[in-house]
Design a protein around this nucleic acid. Sequence first.
DNA 1: TTGAAAGCGCTAACAC
DNA 2: GTGTTAGCGCTTTCAA
Lengths: 344, 344
Amino acid sequence: MPTLYDVAKLAKVSPKTVSRVINQSHLVAEETRKKVLAAMKKLDYHPNAIATSLKRQRSNMIGFVVPYGSEFVFQDPNMMEQLRGTHDYLSAEGFELVVTVPQHKKDALQEALRLTKNRHVDGVILYPSLGVDEIISEFREKNLRYVTLGICSEQQTDNFVEVDQTPGSFLATKYLLSLGHRQIGLINKSRSFFMYNRDDLLNGYRMALEEAGIAFRSSLVREGNFTFADGYANLRSLLEENPELTAVICASDPMTYGALRAIHDLGLVGDRSIEVVAGDNLPLTQKLFPQVSSMTNPSYEQGRTAGKMIVTIINEGRDQPGVNLKTEFVIRQKELGKATNFFS
Amino acid sequence: MPTLYDVAKLAKVSPKTVSRVINQSHLVAEETRKKVLAAMKKLDYHPNAIATSLKRQRSNMIGFVVPYGSEFVFQDPNMMEQLRGTHDYLSAEGFELVVTVPQHKKDALQEALRLTKNRHVDGVILYPSLGVDEIISEFREKNLRYVTLGICSEQQTDNFVEVDQTPGSFLATKYLLSLGHRQIGLINKSRSFFMYNRDDLLNGYRMALEEAGIAFRSSLVREGNFTFADGYANLRSLLEENPELTAVICASDPMTYGALRAIHDLGLVGDRSIEVVAGDNLPLTQKLFPQVSSMTNPSYEQGRTAGKMIVTIINEGRDQPGVNLKTEFVIRQKELGKATNFFS
DNA sequence: TTGAAAGCGCTAACAC
DNA sequence: GTGTTAGCGCTTTCAA
């Protein structure tokens, strides 16, 4: 592979001049520039990114580190949406995206540290998980660059993109109440996942109930690990304890699919059917039958914002204030794929 | 950040000795090793991967380049499975995975070239697309490392991992015939996607029909772009032209979901229902209701094999013979999630 | 507007 | 077993 020196020799200029042309410096005569460009083209020269990185102390790569195993990351639709948002922003800004999913959960955070200390990447986007706050302290101490996909501790005021699910669950509950439902189940997210905003979904649900003057009953609440199986099991469990249940809100779309399946298996159709509200409003959910209304999860936006934030942090050399995004709620009509905004 | 020299100074040894310790050379006395290790720990030293890359002319990064836009890559479940397979293999081998999805299709191949010529990555895994054969010639010419997820031209004998879908569709058709179906539709993959093995699915289908002495009728075949919408539209179109249709085979799972939705919307239940065979046997499909039998698509294995192949190519410094994987077929029983192998 | 020389952090020869 | 030296390909003073 040709080097900058080969180009310089061919163009009969100094290496520095070639470097100037590569970096679009204006301090180079037009004629010289053309000569250099011609030489570069002739040799099919491409600047060695590694050498540039070493010199500039900057790799233009960002790590995306997830601590939940590849079968989770590459199969969880929300995670993919976050990844897609991050990718889209970074690639437009000339950064490469390095995806790292350690084989073992407990290695994940060390992996994030290694990746940055190695100077492999200029910064990382971290998925919250147990022990992440220690890692963050170390990042801060060593002045390394990071952004977290969600708040990781009481003290964290910077470098996060959090999603507040209160509005979505509030509106969903309010909607179901407006349809006349009085026993509304909630299949909530599990506390076994690391999340700072653990109670937002529950709070929105409670607020709407309170507003309607209906007492909150914990027997109507379950927790699940976001999976199909958990949606299935939890719906059955809810029904056993609350035979009069007529509606249920699910914290995630896969759990929604599981709940729908359980309803089907139990033969609950027609008048005895159960109204289900989905959690994420993923593309597939938008096409599901029966059509379901859904809370919306701004996963793509979250990933994109995190990408933007890490780039800003790197470029400006200092932390950025955290950002809060909010969920919404859409009512799905019976017609194929149609959706309208609630209260709009 | 501390450098190797800082460690050397603290441990009172030469830089080379530190380097030896890092690289697990056996040519270093145990006592010296301990001293160095202690110094490394004390300084929280991490080798600068960029510097190592520059020296070694090797970045230990692999690019994964897809030419279909991020909304396709990060939403197509098969692509994710391929990515997951690649990631799992590479990360176990100490390689980083760089995911690149150019904003515009036509840039994709240039992007792949740039990434390798830049020395950003040691090699790339390429998704077949129009014009990829030219890129491959250039890779060969310049002695750059690549693997393609599928054969890209008549001449390509090396560096690919292809999936032959003949067995799956043959078995699927045979199974449907064994149930007594005589009008079996096929929603095939579209020719607008770049694929060398365009006719494998169709061939398996035809072979099974022929074996049963049933004439092939092109009116029973449609093509779709793998999406829900195409499955939906094609099922309706098939039924319009073939009112007696009793079964259909779909080339992809999203198309399967669309077809099931169409069947539901048309009110085809009970005796007049249509037996559907899915295309990929994705996790979600395995839990679908109604339960559907499915061809299986070894996407994870394909990605993993591609990862293994690119590493071998890089390590051995020469091309590797292409690998062919095959699809299979599973019959799904009515019980939740249960599946059995066909003919086993 | 251009060039010479030093150095980013590491490793590979080649001594000793 | 260990150390010295040179150099990977680029950019950055500084000088011309």
